[in-house]
Design a protein around this nucleic acid. Structure first.
Lengths: 334, 334
DNA sequence: TTGAAAGCGCTAACAG
DNA sequence: CTGTTAGCGCTTTCAA
């Protein structure tokens, strides 16, 4: 059996209280006994049980991370960033793939609570607001990444989606495009991007056409399907703005099949600037999010909450960066 | 405060023992009190504390997953597959990015043990065998994915690396290549792939040249650097086999910079068949691993161990599948 | 069929 | 400076 605090106490000839104190560096202990106890702990290869200490009210030093799908490179990078910072701060992170399924969300949350995680970071579009609201009103530490829920008092770090959408659209307009369709992923973060898209159109005096905006799931397949639909029905159409790289990849595939050349016949832009954007053919113009920063910030926000500091709602909006590659070019003259 | 078993007992007018029994479906309880207790639990929104129950010896229903880097699409997919199956079986998974750093490995392991996880899945190349060996000899549930350690009695699921390496090399040889370099990632799984490479060369009567095999870290940058070195020093060189897609991507980049056309002047092959392979320019010939199956299998192995079934060392080797795309073509005549 | 009571390993007063 | 002791929330004999 693994040694317990009793084993250590006995071997060191002290009480368990004393051992507990040297473990946690609390109370006043003479150097002599401290050394003695430490020595014994080493010899016994003693590791305090976090489960037992958590039962007495201490933290588990574990956080939950809810995201849509780890197989999406964007989320994978977010997860990496979050885990990195968590590890620096001594927290483990429990990964939860929700697939935007609100039952799964609920299931994960209850399980995480039962396991007494100290806080939860949400990178999913919670459909079920109630769950989140309950958490928050119970004063349970929650933080959002890459999205925001104004009506909830939750810390959040996100990129300026509006600006990103505006930059993309403006970039296309400045290349002479006037017929620009948008494929938006079904989720909260798309809202800002869409607003940016519409505003840029308006600022350029281009009327917004509802039929040029479609919302769908964020997968390559859906991008392929939706992009194909645009290409088959819209005319003229010289550019497509996809609200994430996966969708853009699908669009490019649809274009390729139709012998539509990128960027000669069609400009395509993505969002997130995932590893895919850099290496796809042709390299994809996309909007970079400072994922490392974002990950670090959410974790810091969450940990502050966990430690009972700042009760105020925190919010940080980072700047997106338009990365221009070869998937965008001058609009073809008609 | 969250309700405890005492609150439920009191409200239901029974003892905590009874409540515990209905929670766990143990012992004999009359339907009447069972219903009563269940009703009260609902009303109170009672959720049993896993921490407390774990302290009495029960499982935490949590497993640890050690992998090198979630930002590598291959590992991200593995993580997704593992989490999926874990979730089906009621287990949460704690993600640990080791970066092949043996201190980090050790740190994660101790932490996971202190948190009383039920088992650990290792997708990293453990440098520090001692840690693993200790775990195993303590009879702690461990399972390996995408690698194998013959000297350890650990369950493992992997792809036939030897066969994969052989197929790749053979494919190149059949295209007329005779000057085939290999870039191997620094890790256990490369060993089999290298053996396959050498065997295929030998079978074709092509002498193995040590200078045509370099080992390095598994990153795009290293692939770029190493690939560049090959391209600058080796002559003739008509094909490069990279032991994973990231490296292959780097090689392609190095080739592009040197105006070396793929596949006309140089054939490139990767391994893992990540999402990158499908979308890079040109699409990359690569070896697919059945990641979904692999993830499911390791989890199943691990859970069997956790539940105390099969004490025998299990091992399953799955078939790799060579996916031929446009990055490979006939060798250029000299 | 139910309940009393003894732990599980640790923390935190409180006393000495 | 050190030890005693009462929990933390739950499981599990063992009696009743």
């Amino acid at each position: 059996m693994k040694p317990t605090i009793y084993d250590v106490a006995r071997a060191a000839g002290v009480s368990i209280a004393t051992v507990s104190k040297v473990i946690n560096n609390t109370g006043r202990i003479s150097d002599k006994t401290r050394m003695k106890v430490n020595k014994v702990m080493e010899e016994l290869r003693y590791q305090p049980s976090m489960v037992a200490s958590a039962l007495t009210g201490k933290r588990m030093n574990t956080i939950g991370l809810l995201l849509k799908d780890l197989a999406n490179p964007f989320f994978a990078e977010v997860a990496r960033a979050v885990e990195d910072r968590g590890q620096e701060l001594g927290f483990n992170v429990v990964m939860c793939n929700t697939d935007n399924d609100s039952d799964k969300e609920a299931g994960y949350i209850t399980l995480l609570m039962q396991k007494k995680v100290d806080g939860i970071i949400v990178a999913t579009d919670f459909r079920n607001h109630t769950i989140l609201k309950d958490l928050v009103s119970d004063d349970f530490p929650v933080a959002l990444i890459s999205q925001e829920i104004p009506e909830l008092a939750v810390d959040s770090v996100l990129v300026d989606d509006y600006l990103g959408g505006y930059q993309v659209t403006n970039h296309l307009i400045s290349l002479g495009h006037r017929s620009i369709a948008m494929i938006a992923e079904d989720g909260r973060s798309s809202l800002g991007r869409i607003r940016g898209y519409r505003q840029a159109l308006e600022d350029a005096g281009i009327p917004f056409d509802e039929s040029m905006l479609i919302t769908c799931e964020a997968t390559v397949e859906e991008g392929y399907r939706t992009g194909g639909r645009f290409l088959d029905t819209l005319n003229p159409l010289t550019a497509i703005f996809a609200s994430n790289d996966l969708l853009a990849v699908g669009v490019m595939k649809a274009a390729r099949e139709r012998n539509i050349r990128i960027p000669d016949d069609l400009s395509v832009v993505g969002f997130d600037n995932t590893i895919l954007a850099a290496f796809i053919d042709p390299p994809l113009t996309s909007v970079a999010q400072p994922i490392q920063d974002m990950g670090r910030q959410v974790v810091d926000f969450l940990v502050k909450r966990i430690e009972g500091e700042n009760k105020m709602k925190q919010r940080v909006v980072l700047m997106p960066e338009l990365v221009i590659r070869n998937s965008t070019g001058p609009a073809k003259a008609h």
